[in-house]
Amino acid sequence: MAENDPVVTADEGQRGVSRRNFIKGVIAAGAAVSTTSYLFRGGSILGQPSLPGAVERLVTLNVNGQQRRVDVMKQETLAMTLRYKLGLTGTKLGCDRSECGACTVLIDDVPHYSCSILTHSVRGRKVVTIEGLASPTGQLHPVQQAVVDAQGFQCAFCMPGFVMATVGYLKTNPNPTRPELAHGISGNLCRCQDYNKILDAMMLAAEYTRRSSRA
């Protein structure tokens, strides 16, 4: 759907295009600015007074390969935008304080805690969430497939974060030893705590990922 929308890059949104024009563009394209702004005062775009030179609230985000237009508060974190504005609830909030990793997403292929980065900071960057891993036909990403095959998690609240952290880490080290992998995904907490099986699954994930990149 969003692929058909006229794309407004973050740079244009900030500099080239005035807010008025930007809003006009959005309205013309018929895109909903924020159909699900449950969490943050979103109602009026002009609701939050703006100082000259400050960031614009309307931004375009690249999430899971799509350009998504969103009305974002200044203090809004990426996790909130994903969960409450873009409907991507696969990204979990376990602590909201960069202490558990459940909210891990990839930003330009690098794992970040989405609870601890402002949405405005990811304009022009590529965000991938757990929902963006499987192919459009539903074929699981090798890391997801490995988790399924190894029955790798229990309550799975931490799982999306672990999966994203692993996907990100394997991009920097496709052939890790078990201790290396443990270190690479150590920014994620599991309270069911079968770290052993998580590592089994993720070692399998490394193997699957290597295989799929070879293929």
Partner: peptide
């Protein structure tokens, strides 16, 4: 061993926990 029926939903982020409802 077998694959439990809830697993794919969990690993794709589709599984809904309490905060995921609207």
């Amino acid at each position: 061993n077998y694959t439990t029926p809830d697993l794919v939903a969990k690993v794709t982020g589709k599984a809904k926990y309490a905060e995921d409802y609207r």
